[in-house]
């Protein structure tokens, strides 16, 4: 279990040059903050949903390489997607994060099958580089912070439009 499993080159690239950093005027954009109480990392997701599409998305806040690169790749992955598509990416990513090292041996394990099914639903692409994080359990929360925040943002955007 080497550091290279955790810090893949693409992760370091997104960490050094984060995509979609910045702010959106809120409102109209939804602004959601996420905190990792463990380490003090915080992330701000600005989300502009128009006609059921994630028209724009910006990331603010500060955190470690894992949380920052995960947020950067997330922004690239969901921008331009419809809300249901974005939710499917969230599900697939979180499924990947919940898979443990033994997953290959876990034949017939319901949770593993469900996770595999959710992952098969969408192509994670670059995000799969974060798979190594599951071998470093304390860092999983770093990787999922922005995703939980995005999920909350989509909920709030949906509620705002329904209202």
């Amino acid at each position: 279990m080497g550091l290279e499993d955790l810090y893949r080159e693409i992760i370091l690239d997104h960490y050094r040059s984060p995509r979609n950093r910045g702010e959106l005027e809120s409102p109209p954009a939804v602004r959601v903050e996420g905190y990792n109480p463990l380490c003090g990392d915080e992330i701000v997701v600005y989300l502009d949903v128009q006609d059921g599409v994630v028209a724009d998305l910006k990331i603010g806040g500060q955190g470690c390489s894992i949380s920052q690169s995960s947020a950067s790749m997330m922004a690239a992955a969901v921008k331009g997607k419809t809300v249901p598509e974005a939710r499917a990416v969230i599900r697939a990513f979180k499924a990947m994060m919940s898979i443990h090292e033994q997953r290959l041996d876990a034949d017939g394990d319901d949770a593993a099958e469900k996770a595999a099914a959710e992952m098969a639903e969408v192509k994670l692409g670059d995000l799969e580089a974060l798979q190594g994080v599951v071998r470093f359990p304390v860092r999983i929360k770093c990787a999922t912070l922005s995703w939980n925040t995005l999920q909350q943002g989509l909920d709030e955007a949906g509620a705002a439009q329904a209202g």
Binding site: L3, Y7, D41, G63, F136, R139
Partner: peptide, 12 residues
């Protein structure tokens, strides 16, 4: 370098 990343690499 974020403290989390420092701590992770020092652990090696």
């Amino acid at each position: 370098i974020h403290p989390h990343d420092i701590s992770q690499v020092l652990d090696q």
